[in-house]
Computed example of a mutant assay.
Amino acid sequence: MPGQKSDDASVLTPEQRLTPENLDVLRACIVTIPDIETARACVAYENAHQNREPILRRLAQRASELRDEK
């Protein structure tokens, strides 16, 4: 993944989460988003850089899951 490397999924940057070419890795990066703030940052990054509708839908779904968990 681009940018700095980390073994802790909670500290991945939006760029690191949303740039894998492999769809399965990309999905895993979204599923492991730990909190709403990270989800919002990922949505902002996606809107500014690639604006892929399927990815934005997955991010919205993850944000909804996070809200339901609280």
Rank of each mutant, 00 (worst) to 15 (best):
L12M: 12
E65A: 12
Y45N: 10
A39Y: 04
A60M: 11
A39K: 03
E37R: 09
D24Q: 11
L66Y: 05
R40E: 12
R40Q: 08
C29Y: 14
E65Q: 15
M1Q: 06
I30C: 02
D68K: 11
A39N: 00
S10M: 05
T32R: 03
D68P: 00
L26W: 07
L59Y: 11
S64K: 10
I30R: 05
C42Q: 04
D7T: 03
R67K: 15
T38H: 03
T13N: 03
I36A: 10
P54D: 15
T32S: 15
V43R: 09
V11H: 02
N51P: 07
L18H: 01
E69L: 15
V43Q: 14
C42H: 04
A44M: 03
G3I: 01
R27D: 14
A44Q: 10
I36F: 06
Y45S: 04
D7M: 09
Q4C: 08
A9K: 04
V31A: 09
R62W: 12
A28Y: 07
E69N: 05
L23D: 13
P2D: 05
H49C: 06
V43P: 01
Q61A: 12
S6Y: 04
R62G: 03
A9V: 11
P34L: 06
A63G: 08
G3T: 03
K70F: 11
A48D: 15
A39C: 00
E15D: 05
R40S: 06
P34M: 01
I55M: 02
A9L: 13
Q61S: 13
I33Q: 02
M1S: 08
L12C: 00
K5T: 08
D24N: 08
A44E: 15
V25Q: 14
R40P: 00
A60Q: 11
I55N: 07
E21Y: 11
N47Y: 10
E65I: 10
L26Y: 06
S10N: 11
S6T: 15
V43I: 13
Q16F: 00
I30H: 06
A48L: 00
P34G: 00
H49P: 00
E69S: 12
L18G: 01
Y45E: 08
C29A: 14
P2I: 04
R40N: 12
I30T: 09
A9F: 05
I33P: 01
T32D: 14
L26N: 09
V31L: 07
D24M: 07
T19F: 06
K5V: 07
R57K: 15
A63V: 02
Q16I: 04
